[in-house]
């Protein structure tokens, strides 16, 4: 695989970053759904056992969460127990990186045709709102403003959870620096 060997390090770092960020988001989705009422309210309209996937086309990294009822999400890692109900697919790893490193807002990425929805569009909108809320939790306010259309006025989360998520972010930020270097 000549192409693979001559790939600059940055490409591999980008891939690792996206993979890691999917893990961060998967865990954070589960954690936030346990404490945040706004996320629960959005999620509760999803059917029980609803499987949501975010992935990089054609079959790159992904994350899978399940709505287990009552607005709670369960993170499944990267393997789904059965066919997923809704999949948000980035057309290329470069696009996933832009969104997951908060250089492009999720809604802008949709508007810019960076990703596709496979499944019910109304569920996709719900999940986008959940992801916006999540990004606002994980990120320091300054970066979150760039990542979501509007920064929510009512964020109340146990300090512990926020700091845990930010630890992930710190790891992630190191990757951004690696990639940008």
């Amino acid at each position: 695989m000549l192409a693979k060997r001559i790939q600059p390090m940055a490409f591999q770092a980008r891939r690792l970053y996206v993979e890691l960020m999917f893990q961060v988001m998967g865990r954070a989705l589960q954690a936030v759904s346990e404490v945040d009422e706004t996320v629960q309210q959005e999620a509760i309209a999803l059917p029980e056992g609803f499987l949501f996937e975010m992935m990089v086309m054609p079959n790159g990294s992904n994350l899978i969460v399940e709505h287990t009822g009552n607005g709670r999400f369960h993170y499944h890692g990267s393997t789904a127990p059965r066919p997923v109900d809704l999949s948000i697919q980035f057309k290329h790893i470069a696009h996933a990186f832009m969104v997951l490193s908060f250089q492009e807002k999720t809604s802008v990425a949709f508007a810019n045709d960076r990703m596709l929805v496979d499944g019910d569009i109304s569920y996709a909108i719900r999940m986008t709102r959940v992801l916006n809320r999540l990004e606002a939790f994980i990120l320091p306010k300054l970066i979150a403003k760039r990542a979501v259309k509007e920064y929510p006025a009512n964020l109340h989360l146990p300090e512990k959870l926020i700091s845990a998520a930010r630890i992930y972010l710190k790891v992630a930020t190191n990757f951004v620096e690696t990639v940008r270097a």
């Binding site: 949709f110 508007a111 109304s122 996709a124 909108i125 719900r126 986008t128 259309k149």
Partner: peptide, 13 residues
């Protein structure tokens, strides 16, 4: 309306 696909592209959240 909050479940409608068009709401995604509205300039304000």
């Amino acid at each position: 309306a909050l479940d409608d696909g068009a709401i995604m592209f509205n300039p304000k959240e």
